[in-house]
């Protein structure tokens, strides 16, 4: 008996977490998937009716806006964050004496809640009292920067705030990547008289492909999950102009009482994450070939 316990103790210790993950992750996903196939409204129903919720979802102009916004926001956010992050990393990699301090400053927004970030930028972008008013106050009377209240432009303010929050993190990833490149290869290139910019474009950056992938995954993941920032910055408005799938789902679940729509939109989000993360996880967890 004691021997049995001794042999199985590790499994027993892992078991509660395993069960929790099975129920609260996989079980819940299954529940949501099931409900997304029913006519659930205020209360969940369990008779499967097919894809009606998805049909409603993709017929809804609000969801259409949300998806479109995710596309704009996601693309701009990922591309610019990577470009900015790489630029800042390369600039910081030039034997800067105050590197530690600068790095700390670039990265601190990552420690903040998205709600704080949203609140701060909402104030800064306030046309009447913020940046616009400030520049006008300097004498540029015609200056206009009212994106946050402009339905066509508001989504770009979300991009700005998100970039401020996350690009420092991408910088940190890239800086670590730059530093991990084998120094001897670089010395060899320098001895060969290859100019520095060529060393970056031909040797260092190509060898950082895995880091680009990681950064992409993290940023894509952040973009799809983005919820708090929009809530705090624009509240999804003006109108529904800055709705994202995450805010759509939340509105359906908790203020509109449309569980079927909430479930189906959550499943679509899940599918998008799945499409990005699964190949990545698979390649990461696969037994490594040489290192």
């Amino acid at each position: 008996m004691t021997k049995w316990l001794e042999d199985h103790l590790p499994k027993l210790m892992l078991a509660p977490s395993f069960v929790a993950v099975l129920v609260f992750v996989y079980g819940f996903i299954a529940w949501t998937a099931w409900v997304s196939l029913t006519r659930s409204r205020l209360l969940p129903k369990y008779e499967i009716e097919g894809l009606i919720q998805y049909e409603r979802l993709f017929a809804s102009p609000r969801w259409d806006t949300a998806l479109n916004n995710l596309y704009i926001f996601g693309t701009l956010f990922i591309v610019i964050a990577m470009a900015l992050g790489l630029l800042m990393a390369i600039l910081l990699d030039q034997n800067i004496r105050t590197e530690g301090a600068i790095r700390t400053i670039y990265l601190y927004p990552m420690a903040l809640s998205m709600i704080v970030t949203g609140t701060a930028w909402k104030w800064i972008l306030n046309p009447g009292l913020g940046l616009e008013a400030m520049v006008k106050g300097w004498g540029f009377e015609r200056f206009s920067f009212d994106w946050i209240v402009d339905p066509d432009m508001a989504i770009y303010t979300v991009v700005i705030a998100a970039l401020w929050q996350s690009s420092g993190f991408v910088m940190a990833l890239f800086l670590a990547g730059l530093r991990s490149v084998d120094g001897e290869i670089i010395k060899a290139a320098q001895v060969d008289g290859i100019p520095t910019w060529r060393i970056y474009t031909a040797i260092i950056i190509p060898s950082m492909a895995p880091i680009f992938l990681s950064a992409f995954i993290v940023l894509a993941h952040l973009a799809i999950k983005s919820f708090d920032l929009v809530i705090a910055l624009t509240g999804g408005g003006p109108g529904f102009a800055t709705d994202l799938p995450a805010t759509y789902m939340y509105a359906m679940a908790f203020s509109r009482g449309d569980i079927g729509q909430a479930a189906s939109s959550a499943m679509v989000m899940m599918a998008v994450v799945f499409a990005i993360v699964v190949p990545y996880l698979y390649s990461e967890l696969r037994p490594q070939k040489d290192g």
């Binding site: 996903i29 529940w31 996880l281």
Partner: peptide, 25 residues
Amino acid sequence: ANIIFALMLFGCFIPFQVVLLPMAR
């Protein structure tokens, strides 16, 4: 053990919207 770990790891990446409704219940 590795499969259990992979399953747990995947749990990190799900959008939490997908568990909000059942969790509330």
